[in-house]
């Protein structure tokens, strides 16, 4: 059994389980699945700076912070007990492309050649880690949600604004990965 769990889970197992998070949170306490809001609650609790957007009673949303802390703990548990030793199997075309940029380490879920403390002091590392993170935080709040809040929760409840958002997430990702990222990785 543990051996089976240690293998990477196929999409048709993990996808439906991720989908089940929607009814679980609703039934537990009327909570809409959404993760990027936690970043807003962190701002509201730590650095509200008298900004109206952060003037609300974040304690009413504290469940969301419990949830994301759980995600962090789940990551720790999975890494410590539930992962196999095989490096991640990646499409050979991508392996080829990335090798051209000196990315050859597949032992981690993030490319250790760039996204690491050493990489943080290179131009491409700063763009991927710092600029990328900033865009994630700014973009999700501007859009009113992320992959969980819009793509999964929003589409599950048939909300067309979420479809617009999801299409834009994907469009932005395609443009960045195919048009800009090659130049950034070559830095």
């Amino acid at each position: 059994m543990l051996e089976l769990i240690k293998q990477p889970w196929p999409w048709y197992v993990s996808g439906p389980l991720i989908g089940l998070t929607v009814p679980v949170l609703l039934i537990m306490g009327n909570k809409s699945f959404g993760i990027s809001s936690s970043l807003r609650h962190i701002c509201a609790s730590c650095i509200p700076a008298n900004i109206p957007f952060f003037k609300y009673d974040w304690k009413k949303e504290i469940w969301n912070l419990f949830f994301v802390f759980g995600i962090f703990a789940g990551g720790m548990i999975a890494a410590a007990f539930l992962v196999g030793t095989e490096p991640i199997a990646v499409n050979p075309a991508l392996v080829n492309e990335l090798a051209g940029y000196g990315i050859t380490n597949y032992n981690n879920l993030v490319p250790a050649d760039i996204i690491s403390w050493d990489g943080l002091f290179s131009a491409r590392g700063i763009i991927l880690i710092v600029v990328g993170g900033f865009l994630v935080g700014f973009g999700t709040r501007y859009a009113g949600g992320c992959t969980s809040g819009h793509a999964i929760m929003g589409l599950s409840s048939l909300q067309w604004p979420s479809l617009v958002a999801t299409i834009c997430f994907m469009a932005g990702g395609f443009v960045m990965a195919n048009l800009f990222l090659p130049y950034i990785l070559a830095l």
Binding site: I35, G137, A143, C146, L181
Partner: peptide, 20 residues
């Protein structure tokens, strides 16, 4: 949802991660 969505898409492809 359009402007923010596109910007988040850029960030998603750079960091390889959404907030979760």
């Amino acid at each position: 949802q359009i402007y923010g969505g596109l910007l988040f898409g850029f960030g998603w492809a750079l960091t390889g991660a959404c907030p979760g």
